[in-house]
Simulated assay, not measured.
Amino acid sequence: MKKVLSLAIVFAFVMMVVFAAVPAAAQDTRVGIVLSTGGLGDLSFNDAAYRGLQRAEEELGISFQYIEPADPSEDQTALRRFASRGFDLVIGVGFQMADSLQTVAAEYPETRFAHVDQAFQDVPDNIVTLNFAEWEGSFLAGALAALTSENGNVGFVGGVDFSLIHRFEGGFYQGAKYIDPDIEFQTRYADDFGDPARGREIALGMIDDGADVIYHAAGGTGSGVFQAAEEEDIYAIGVDSNQNYVAPGYVIASMLKKVDNAVFDTVKSVVEGNYQGGENLYFTLEDGGVDLTSLTEVGQPVMDALNNGTITEAELQTIEEMKETVTSPHADRIAEIKEMIINGEIDVENWGETGRPDNL
């Protein structure tokens, strides 16, 4: 009997410690997120934002709900649903949601909001925007593409022809031209973030015109680019999340955009009571907000893909062999270029502000 009683006391003590480890405010913190067109499964920024909330749920003890609108016209209704129900933080993902979030935030001035991917001219006190220097990370992607291209011909596939996506395109273009001023550059926009068939069609056309490395910033549409790369035996570069396990051996790197970290930090600020609205936050190459995946190591996301059955041991070996023969030889050069961007020796133009050149 004493043994049973002792176990009960120990269990009660352990549970007290567990709950004490979670901030009291966090247990009641509710977060609502409205995802961008394409929703979960894009292997890109929607999935990254969701991962940030999963981490907050695990580490901070918050709860969250999400909505995947089928069309941007549904964004206001989705945002309003969370705000009207008293959620502690409401997050909108994607530049297409910018106007909708500002409208709803004005209706609910006591609700905290966060917006991913669009800075505002005058940021209200109940909004913080999370923005990234995509042009810096994409410069590294462009440099790598030029270094690995055998044809001297690379391509860029954008989701929607908009200033945000121009930031990716511009960085990629400048990086490729930095390595090879004479490189041929192809660019096309799919007008959709969730159409893999369209991404494949565009990529196949680029390949027919000589491209042997293609970078996408097109959300779910980009999976079609990977399919085309595998079919035609050329290389592709992923975006936002580590997509190196998709089409094993053909995705040579991914330009990382740490949306997950930014979302987690914002939720943490709400939990800890130091949320600061009225700001446009920027995450850069210098602070790790953007980066290129390792050119020498496969990385944890690839190992996770192996462990959950997404890829096989043979496919992992293919990725490792690709790293060794294709990207590792350029690791030092890319690291050097990264440092030159950070210390200002290379100034990467932000096409989101300056606009795309007329000759493209």
Rank of each mutant, 00 (worst) to 15 (best):
V290E: 04
E279T: 14
G278F: 14
V271F: 06
N274M: 08
A262E: 08
V267A: 10
D265C: 05
Y275M: 08
E272R: 11
E272C: 15
Q276W: 09
F283S: 01
E286P: 12
E279V: 15
G277Y: 07
T284G: 00
G278N: 11
Q276G: 04
K268M: 09
V271M: 02
V267I: 11
F264L: 11
N280K: 08
Y282N: 06
G288Q: 06
L281Q: 14
S269P: 07
V290H: 05
G289R: 03
D287F: 14
E279Q: 15
L281C: 01
F283L: 07
D287N: 08
T266D: 09
Q276T: 12
F283H: 07
T266P: 01
N261F: 15
F283T: 00
S269E: 05
L281S: 06
V267G: 05
G288E: 12
D265I: 10
N274E: 15
D265P: 10
T284H: 03
K268D: 07
G289W: 02
Y275K: 07
F283Q: 00
N274K: 04
S269I: 08
N274G: 12
N261K: 13
G289V: 05
Y275N: 03
L285S: 05
T284S: 09
V271N: 05
E279M: 08
L281Y: 01
K268P: 09
S269H: 08
E286C: 09
G278T: 07
T266V: 08
F283W: 01
D287T: 15
Y282F: 01
V267Y: 04
G289K: 01
K268W: 11
D265W: 06
D265H: 03
A262G: 06
N261V: 14
L285F: 12
F264E: 13
V270T: 07
Y275W: 14
A262F: 01
N280Q: 10
N261S: 06
F283M: 04
Q276E: 09
G273Q: 03
V263P: 01
A262S: 09
E272I: 14
V267S: 12
Q276H: 14
T284W: 09
G278I: 07
E272S: 15
N261C: 07
N261T: 15
Y282A: 01
G278C: 11
L285G: 00
L285V: 01
V271P: 04
G273F: 01
S269A: 14
N274W: 06
D287Q: 09
G273D: 00
D287E: 12
G288L: 05
E286S: 04
G273Y: 11
V271W: 02
T266E: 10
V270K: 09
N261W: 13
N261H: 11
